[in-house]
């Protein structure tokens, strides 16, 4: 009987220590993944710049490791999405070499004007849920900094002010002044095309329309869906960041697009990102 109890007890201890070791092991593995993940944009900046250790502790500027070139190369190599993007290893290496270039290294700064966020949101518009992009920038104000809305992209706005040109367009005839512009009455009507009566180079300001419609309750904010960050601060390069929620080390805020761009390509890219024609 004693033997049986002893055997059961030793079984119990072996089993419990095995299962707790398994739990500790599981936790350890997860914690290593979480540690590796680029958890905040702040951490992306710090890793990019080589300003923190592997546990996320900030280096003081007088620390030997602070912005150390070798450390930066190591960190930069893990800041790329490895699964869903087709960034070539050549482009990646060229970029890393460029930003860590001994005599002219490049660093990122939260307060820089060379980057912005594109926030994909949902608004209620005339009783219907619709996607709307907010372009956000960081700016200095009073004693500190703030994020502000720099522009918007919203499908209903895109065609709302497309004006016809040429012989078939409606117009206010060139002698309207003699009639005290009495024909305005027929031009400016609900459901009409008032944009037809504007200057040839008229460009609508979508942000102002957006602000007006929010104020009037025509557009009602519902939620944020996702966001990306676009960086143009490294001369000759563009990259964007996306948040990857994955159960491995290659997760968090990572570079999802990387392109070498000249000035005109940069302009074209900005037009695409801002959804401008």
């Amino acid at each position: 009987m004693k033997k049986l109890i002893l055997l059961s007890l030793s079984f119990f201890f072996v089993f419990t220590s095995y299962s707790s070791a398994q739990i500790v092991g599981e936790n350890y593995e997860i914690e290593q993944q979480l540690l590796a993940s680029t958890k905040q944009l702040n951490q992306f900046f710090k890793r990019f710049n080589g300003e923190e250790d592997v546990k996320g502790r900030t280096f003081e500027p007088d620390d030997r490791q602070y912005r150390n070139e070798r450390l930066r190369k190591k960190y930069l190599s893990i800041l790329f999405d490895e699964e869903d993007t087709d960034i070539s290893s050549q482009a990646k290496n060229d970029f890393i070499e460029r930003v860590t270039q001994g005599d002219n290294p490049e660093f990122l700064n939260l307060h820089s004007t060379d980057w912005f966020a594109v926030v994909n949101t949902t608004f209620l518009y005339k009783g219907k849920e619709m996607p709307l992009l907010l372009y956000m920038k960081i700016q200095q104000e009073a004693l500190g900094y703030e994020w502000v809305i720099a522009d918007v992209a919203f499908d209903p706005y895109k065609t709302m002010f497309d004006k016809q040109r040429g012989e078939t367009k409606v117009f206010l005839h060139p002698m309207s002044h003699e009639l005290d512009f009495m024909n305005l009455r027929k031009a400016l009507v609900k459901g009409g095309v008032p944009e037809s009566y504007t200057l040839a180079d008229y460009k609508p300001d979508f942000l102002t329309i957006f602000l007006y419609e929010v104020k009037m309750g025509i557009l009602q904010f519902q939620t944020v869906n996702r966001m990306n960050y676009h960086f143009f601060g490294i001369d000759g390069w563009y990259f964007s960041l996306t948040n990857f929620n994955r159960a491995n080390d290659n997760s968090g805020w990572l570079i999802s697009d990387l392109l070498q761009v000249n000035t005109s390509q940069k302009e074209d890219l900005l037009k695409i990102i801002y959804e401008k024609k």
Binding site: Q40, G56, E141, A142, L143, Y145, E146
Partner: peptide, 25 residues
């Protein structure tokens, strides 16, 4: 709670107060 946390830098707001973000799991 997992034993992993990340504390951002403190940034100053327009009103002079500081703001940061602590990430935990």
């Amino acid at each position: 709670w997992y034993d992993v946390q990340y504390i951002s830098d403190l940034e100053r707001q327009p009103d002079g107060r500081y703001v940061g973000v602590v990430t935990i799991y």
